[in-house]
Each structure stands twice: as structure tokens, then as C-alpha cells.
Nucleic acid binder design. Structure first.
Lengths: 355, 355
DNA sequence: AACGCTAATCTAAACGTTTCGAACGTGTCA
DNA sequence: TGACACGTTCGAAACGTTTAGATTAGCGTT
């Protein structure tokens, strides 16, 4: 605590371009030119400037740069829940892709709530993100107007949005569920319970269609009491399953259209004293790391998370690279049914289980 | 494509404060004063300005603001892998906390690589983040100098860093593993395999000590051949487990100090034709949503992710609120052993298994 | 010797805010 | 009536860059 070292230079202004310029005895413009390669600067000055930068420990101020350039090299990414393993994986891929391209990623979780989403998007736009990748939530909100004002490019992820005409990458949800349910039917299942999230988002809507069409294609009736919907959370899956299992003529199989909800399904089956696949078969949407580790190994519809993330990143990077006026592009990827052993063929014995 | 609507106003400069000022027939300083509440402005002008803002659709440019103010209300967060469920959860909590405080979060994944981490941190500092939360990787790097230069506050998460003296929130790893291993010993296990990540990060180091101390406290020898280390990934856990299981006197239990690696452990057990817990007991670090859903229900050490995330956020927010000179604070939280059924008591029959 | 050309460098005006200090009008007091 | 204080409003200088356009020096032409 000497008299000299007082106040701990809180205001230790970081070195600026001006300091570099002075130290190198050149103009500030020359420093900028060298840093950006926008003009040729003589070997001599180059050397002096580089030395000065090293001596001073100069770091270019990206905020000032952003202000002048009108670009932040930062993008915004919003997802409903980062704890959903599908989104976790996709976020990871997207982050890597933008990292490679020299962009930073601002991540927001919207918690399946439209107001939160709007707020987050505003937050991101305030910070002048160059682009937006949105796994949207809800139907209206400010998303539409943002896309229309077209100042920042938007890529929709996983979920389309009615009336919002912009780049998107989604799964062929209808086909994926069609295949999964058809698989169950081939195993001999006739009464197949279906648990969905709220149907105001496109994947849930499309998956439901896939379910209905698979039944119809097999000449089976669609029993409305076998369809339950919840709000994407484990507890919703639990409740939905409880209801399904207490039907007088209960299903022999359950398909859960959402990953977190299937945890609830499994817990409900356990709590009610049944077991999978002996008493009831289960399949669900979205693969996850543990799906083939435990008993039963869960049959799932795996999304190509790597491709989804990369394509979304590419679409946005392409817009950011200047390709602004191309018409909106929609990429539809295919899911893959990962057949494991949580669904069993229905034999004579299983038929009588519901009795 | 009429002659009038050409070029699609790409350069549709967003409305600025100047526009508002003009529309409201006031000076730009008054607009700023009103927006920030830094001076009283008469009801009349207030009304005119607010009207103008609404008419024009003005949004304050946070970049310009940041440049002037020297603060971005953005923090940087780096984690080794976002797909690790522990980090996923913590990230989620942290994101929420900062969201509430009006901060944006830039997320980076360092992929357990020191160079990547340094690069990411530089990226974040370039963008003038106000603070940093780092679940660090490697030992040296620029982290030390950043903390010392002390221009931006840093909070270490989950992992301490030698020689880096700053705020931190970590688990009492040693105690947590001590308890878990002691539990195994009480069940009758004598040869307990231990799978760790590389020991250059503090949690791995501390957990290892916990393991050794538990054995010693019970008067058991520490058999080095039962300790295997890998690089945090599933495959490493798989290989390590394979090695443990092919020992002539193989362990009756395995503790995995890292969550992703336990997936490999379970797969190795399965592939080698054994089953858990009948043939071998398993416990691991980090709880996850599926841990009690399937068979076996995994015994784990659960970290208080909510508390960890919130405390880390609070430490940083406190610094950001101006409390810069307080000495570094280290928060040590307690883990909780979640006893399920992946570890079984050793009876007479089990004793002979290794024969 | 005057001219133009090129290459290298510099000057100064932005970018959209915040903020300090000055200016203004009005009312109070001696 | 002049001095003064007070509450509002404004002008203008920052913040740290980029960049268009001016300036300079060097050099070959005619």
C-alpha cells in the first residue's frame, strides 16, 4: 500500500490504435490498413507497427469495429430447452460451425414460452447480432416482423412457423413417425398409444399426421382416447402414460413424440408395476446417448443432429456471406428408426395381457 | 420488379436517436436523458419523444452504447463439452440467471482442448464481454494473465486452476467420492475399479484422492492396476472397463469419475457378456435424467447443479455490480450420493465370481 | 523541366451513443 | 432592479474504429 500504487488503476484504459500509431510513428489509418490488409503498407512500417503492437499488447476493440462496420460477427441462437438432448446436440454442432467461421454464438433458452422468446430475440437484436437461428416457440410474436423487415437473416430450426417465410431446416417428421408406427403395427400392435406435445408447433403437428396415416394405411381405426398431449415435460409424459395405462382396453404400445416426455412414460410404467417391453412396448422420438446402454434399450427415431446443425449453420453463413436475395430455402432431412428391444412382437400371450 | 422498388433498400439504416430527436423537435441529448433517466425531462417533451419513438420504431443501438459506456452487458461462458449433462444443466441455470439480470450469454465449447479454450477466450474478450465464467481446461493458457490483468472478472466453474486466484465455485469432490467408495466398501466390495479423466484438472485430482482415502480409511490396499484413466469420452470409459474386466482378479465394482465415460463402462460390461449389478457393481459421478428410469438404476454422485450455476452467476454479478476489490471467494458445495440399485451387496456367491 | 502515374501514407469524417458543461428562462430575494 | 439559484434543455466532445479522398514522394516520359 505505498503512496505510489494507489487506486489500482481501475481505469487502466486498454491500449488503442492511437497508442500503437504513436509508438510506431505512423498514422492511425496505416495501422488499420495493415491490420485489415486493405492497403499495402511498406515492409518498414509493417515491421514498426507489428513491433509496437507486440510491445503494447494491443488488441483491437471489436465493439468500435462493429459500430463502424455495422456487423458484429455474432449470431443469436434460441432453443426451447437446452437440456433436451436433441437441442443440446444441435447447439453443440452449431456452435462449432460458427466458431470455425470466426463467429461468436449468443445462446438463449426460451423455455417453450412465446413471451420469453420475444424478449430474448429483442435482446439479441439490440446487441446487433448479424443473424438468428431460432427453434421457435409459439406461433406469432415478433419473429414474423423481423423476417419481413429483413434486416437480419433468420434460419428456422426444427420447427417451421406459419406465415414466416425464411430459410429453414427441419425433419420429415411425418414420414419418421409413419415409419415408427408402421414398425409397431408390423410387430402386431393394434392399439398404439400416442403422446404428443402441444400441437401448435410444426413437428408435433406433422408427427401426429404420421401416426394417423400409419394407422389408416394399415386399415386400423384411430382411437382418440389413445392420443394424449402434454407440455413437453417429463411430468406431462408421466401423466399421459398413467391415463393411457388405466384405460379399460389399454394400448399394447406407446409412442412418445417427444424425448423428455418418454422419461415420464418409463417412470409411469414402472410405478404402475408393469415392465417394458414385456407388458408394454415403447418407442419415442429423438435418440440420446443412453438409449442403448440400459435395459430396455429404447427404440427411437434418431434425428441427424450433425447434419441439421451444420445445414442450419450453412444456410445462415451463406446469407451472412452476402447472398441475401435468394428465395427462402427449406431443407427437409430424414429421420432414422433405431430398432432396439423396447418393442416386442405381440404373441398369443401378450394379447391376453389387457384382460 | 418495378423501377421504383429496386435494390430492396438493403441499406435501410435503422432509425437512430437523431431521427427521434428531429421528429420530437428536441435535442439528441434530451432523448438520451429520457431513455436513461439521467435527468428530468418535462412531461411535454417526454410525451413528444415517446410518441416519436413509437412512430419511428426506434431501438437503441447497444453497440454504440457499449462503445461509449465501456460495458456490453454480455458475459462469456466456456465449458469443455455442452453435451455432458452436468454442463448442460449448469449452462441452463447460468443462462437463466443472467437473462434475469439483463445480460446476454455467449457460449463457447472448448472441447477439452487448451488451445481451443485460449482462442475462445480471446474471441470473447475481443467482443468486450463484461465477465467470464470458465469451466477451464488444461493448466496454463491465457487464463492466468487475464485474471491478473484484472480488467474483466473471471469466475471459475467446477474446476480450479493452479496459480489462478479468482472467484470459484466447485464441488467437494474428494468428500463426494470418499462417500461413494465408502458406500461400496460397506456393501462388501474390496476390489473397486476406478476410472478417471486426465488428472490435470482439479476435480479429477480431488476425486482420486477421495478414492484412495476411502480405501485407506477402511484399511484396504490401493491396487494401482485397478485405476485407469482416459480422456473423458465414452470410448475411453469403454476401453478402461475392458481392461479392468480382463484382469485376472477383476474388481467387483467400478466407480467412474466422469459421466460420459460411464456409458462406455456399461457398454463394455454388456459386450463382455456380464451384467450389472449381478456380476459387477457400478457407480459414477454426475446424475442425469435417465439414471433412475432404466434397469439398472444407476447409483450416482449428484452435483447440486442448480446451486452451482446460481452461485457462479451470483459471484460474477456481484463483481459486475462493482464489487471489484473484494478478495477471491471460493465456494465449495457438497455432492449427494444417490443410492439406487446398480451396486449390490457382496454375498458368498458373488465372492466366487472372479474364479 | 514539366507532366502524369503509381504506391504509400495521412487527414478527417463518419458510426450512434453518453455526458459534461454551458445556456436559457423563470422565480426569489435583497 | 440586479444577483442568484434552479430546473430544463442543448451543443459538442468523446468512445475506438474504418475509409474516402487528399497528399506526398518517386520515377519514367516527352
Amino acid at each position: 500500500m505505498t503512496a505510489s500504487g494507489r487506486k489500482k488503476q481501475r481505469k487502466s484504459t486498454a491500449p488503442t490504435m492511437l497508442h500503437v500509431a504513436e509508438a510506431a510513428r505512423v498514422s492511425i489509418a496505416t495501422v488499420s490498413a495493415l491490420l485489415n490488409g486493405t492497403a499495402t503498407v511498406s515492409p518498414e512500417l509493417t515491421q514498426r507497427i507489428e513491433q509496437a503492437i507486440r510491445d503494447i499488447g494491443y488488441k483491437r476493440n471489436a465493439i468500435a469495429r462493429s459500430l463502424k462496420m455495422g456487423t458484429t460477427r455474432t449470431i443469436g441462437l434460441t432453443v426451447p430447452h437446452i437440456t433436451n438432448p436433441f437441442f443440446t446436440d444441435v447447439v453443440s454442432v452449431i456452435q462449432q460451425a460458427f466458431d470455425r467461421a470466426g463467429y461468436a454464438v449468443m445462446l438463449c433458452c426460451t423455455d417453450e414460452d412465446l413471451n420469453t422468446q420475444d424478449e430474448q430475440i429483442r435482446l439479441l437484436l439490440d446487441r446487433m447480432v448479424d443473424g438468428l437461428i431460432v427453434a421457435r416457440v409459439g406461433d406469432g410474436g415478433i419473429l414474423k416482423s423481423i423476417v419481413e423487415d429483413a434486416n437480419v437473416p433468420v434460419v428456422l430450426l426444427d420447427r417451421l412457423c406459419e406465415g414466416v417465410d425464411t430459410d429453414a431446416v427441419v425433419l420429415d417428421n411425418q414420414r419418421a413417425v409413419f415409419d415408427a408406427v408402421t414398425y409397431l403395427i408390423h410387430l402386431g400392435h393394434r392399439r398404439i398409444g400416442y403422446i404428443t406435445g402441444t400441437s401448435d408447433i410444426s413437428p408435433m403437428h406433422d408427427r401426429m399426421i404420421g401416426y394417423r396415416e400409419a394407422l389408416q394405411a394399415a386399415g386400423l381405426p384411430v382411437a382418440e382416447e389413445l392420443i394424449r398431449s402434454g407440455n413437453f415435460h417429463e411430468i406431462d409424459g408421466y401423466n399421459a402414460t398413467m391415463q393411457l395405462l388405466s384405460l379399460h382396453d389399454r394400448p399394447s404400445a406407446i409412442f412418445s413424440a417427444n424425448n423428455p416426455m418418454v422419461i415420464g412414460t418409463m417412470k409411469a410404467i414402472r410405478d404402475i408395476g408393469l415392465s417394458c417391453p414385456e407388458d408394454i412396448s415403447v418407442a419415442c422420438f429423438d435418440d440420446f446417448p443412453w438409449s442403448d446402454v440400459f435395459v430396455p434399450q429404447l427404440t427411437t427415431v434418431a434425428q441427424p443432429v450433425q447434419a441439421i446443425g451444420e445445414q442450419a449453420a450453412n444456410l445462415l453463413l451463406d446469407r451472412l456471406a452476402g447472398n441475401r436475395d435468394a428465395p427462402p430455402r427449406k431443407l427437409v432431412l430424414k429421420g432414422r428408426l433405431m430398432i432396439r428391444n423396447s418393442c416386442r412382437p405381440l404373441g398369443a400371450i401378450a394379447q391376453s395381457v389387457s384382460a
